[in-house]
Design a protein around this nucleic acid. Structure first.
Lengths: 342, 342
DNA sequence: AGAATGAATGGTAGCGCTAACATTAGCGCA
DNA sequence: TGCGCTAATGTTAGCGCTACCATTCATTCT
């Protein structure tokens, strides 16, 4: 007797569970679980019965319970500094395309270029038992470093290259800066101003500037830097152009930290009747489509953004599938697009 | 005898749990849980002890377990048709800003304009016990409709306006189409070609075209439509311009389905020496920053994208906090930006 | 003083699933 | 027929947390 197994349900609406499907199909719960997770381990006939039962009862699987039980969430934490910048969106698109194919779900976090915020996001995402972490850049707060060191799962640091604890996929920004500086020297420019917006935040632009400066100083040239407040992608570029023409009348070229700024400058020049590159040459970085559509076509450096995403995802997945865990670095390279603006 | 409570751990590395913190602090697990979830329900002194214990043992809370136990994940499923289009990225930015403030985590899904894919994503996200769903558009597959009807949580359909089951935040695309058509008529144009890319996918562009056609036909004018394959945002616009000039020499204006196409056309015209708007007027839709920087400045309609995201998030949060569940529609409106291109 | 309140804390029993091990079925071969 | 093997399926005990109710203790009111 007894039998007061009858307990009050905590949820008002009961969704069918694995047990309901199992009862319907006349098998055990674990068999249903196997149909969902490793179908090849179940006899086709059984599988068919179970699948019919799943349809019949309208079962929706509870991923939370599964993840808790298996201590494996199939979440990939992705942390980027900004969504306003199309560059990171393209990286995310690459990551998502690849991860989705393998049944992983991205948890997206946006730091707004704040390292403390980044640390907080990392903590939260670890709390979700993420299977891996993809984070932008190699610079993190100390607290964040400590958390990551004790974490057992794959960590991919993307966009730039450097010393890595685990996976590192990106390009050599200093080299990109050098490359463009050399290109400008090759075109005969000697007075080149480097223009960035909020360099303390976008420190990868700082790395490019360092490369740029190195090349110029090797030639005994100075490397003036103009670091502006950020107003809006294009507007800042336009403002920078005015400022250089006023305060650096000797300059013959501007090396912009990115294509948004450079494009803003070219469009402004166009409207003001300033001839590019005759009066002032303009170069950018990223190889955004817009730069290749304006007149003059922008000289820039193509960064393979979606490739970074795909390659990072591919390597993370390999590790999750059991590849060895020796630190690995992948240089995706870059390409100089010589346009008409220099 | 007995006493073989000694079981093998399933996880190799044991993270500290609530119970560990509780032991350290000399309280019960539920008290630690309260410190994390409703701190005001715990005496400050106890809270301090517990917080110290949390730090001491390096506790990272397991969100999966919490969500499972409480049947409340604090996940918001967000489904958009594309990440390549900056418009949706801005909506996501708005959603994320608002949701993050309230401790919700976005699960991002990308349908690539495929309604079956959308349905699949909805199912997956329900499996994560999402607290709410934000989905782009009002058109869904039948299977998807059925799933959503049985779902008990808030569903926000965004971008366009129409009959809604729950929450609907967007703008009236037909009206936007009418608005631009009237503007073009007002500027004296009578032969206006509407140009879209892959209209069957981007059906909201179709709604705008319907509004556009309505206005023209009221005036006894024809409303030719040019629907192109999608090549790349700007390239398709350039191609469309060529095609209109060749096959519709009588046309004096092109009403583009979006700013990307329109911008591509203007940049192409600039390069080819085609005068805009003298030879051909050009109008777009979305009010992207680039359109306001090119010469001539693009005539377009500003869609408040980040506002859509914020408003949607705000209303979803209100519902999650217990607001009544009567269907609600919010028209975010739009604004005609009369530029120099018409 | 005793009852009635309210605030703070604790005990117990799951949430729905899967890891680990146990058992059974199925098959080839001597 | 029976042995050994593998493939298929089942049993059990949690994963780490929170809902629900019970309990304790201090405070106020009659």
């Amino acid at each position: 007797m007894g039998g007061d197994k009858q307990r009050r349900n905590r949820k008002s609406v009961m969704q069918p569970t694995l047990a309901d499907v199992a009862r319907e199909a006349g098998v055990s719960a674990i068999t249903v679980s196997r149909v969902l997770n490793s179908p090849q381990a179940v006899r086709p006939a059984t599988r068919a019965t179970v699948e019919a039962a799943i349809d019949k009862v309208g079962y929706v699987r509870n991923m939370l319970a599964g993840s808790l039980a298996s201590a494996n969430s199939r979440f990939i934490a992705v942390i980027v500094p900004s969504l306003a910048n199309i560059v990171f969106v393209e990286v995310i698109a690459g990551l998502q395309a690849e991860f989705e194919r393998h049944g992983y779900q991205i948890l997206l976090g946006n730091t707004d270029y704040d390292l403390d915020r980044e640390c907080e996001l990392v903590r939260t995402f670890l709390g979700w038992s993420s299977s891996a972490l993809v984070v932008t850049g190699l610079r993190h707060s100390e607290a964040c470093q400590r958390v990551l060191e004790h974490w057992e799962h794959p960590v991919a640091e993307i966009m730039e290259l450097g010393e890595t604890r685990d996976l590192n996929i990106g390009l050599d920004h200093a080299e990109a800066g050098r490359c463009m500086a050399k290109h400008l020297l090759g075109r005969g420019h000697r007075q080149i101003v480097y223009v960035a917006a909020q360099l303390e935040r976008d420190y990868r632009a700082g790395l490019r500037f360092a490369g740029h400066r190195e090349v110029l100083e090797e030639q005994g040239l100075s490397a003036p830097l103009l670091d502006l407040e950020h107003l809006g992608q294009f507007e800042t570029g336009a403002q920078a152009l005015e400022e250089v023409l006023t305060h650096h009348p000797e300059a013959t070229a501007i090396h912009f930290a990115n294509d948004d700024l450079a494009t803003g400058a070219i469009l402004h020049a166009q409207r003001q009747g300033i001839r590019v590159p005759e009066e002032i040459a303009i170069a950018g970085f990223n190889g955004l489509p817009i730069g290749q559509r304006i007149t003059p076509r922008l000289t820039t450096i193509l960064s393979p953004r979606e490739t970074i995403g795909r390659e990072a995802a591919r390597r993370v997945i390999a590790r999750l599938q059991g590849a060895d865990r020796t630190p690995e670095q992948h240089d995706v390279g870059f390409e100089l697009l010589a346009g008409e603006s220099t």
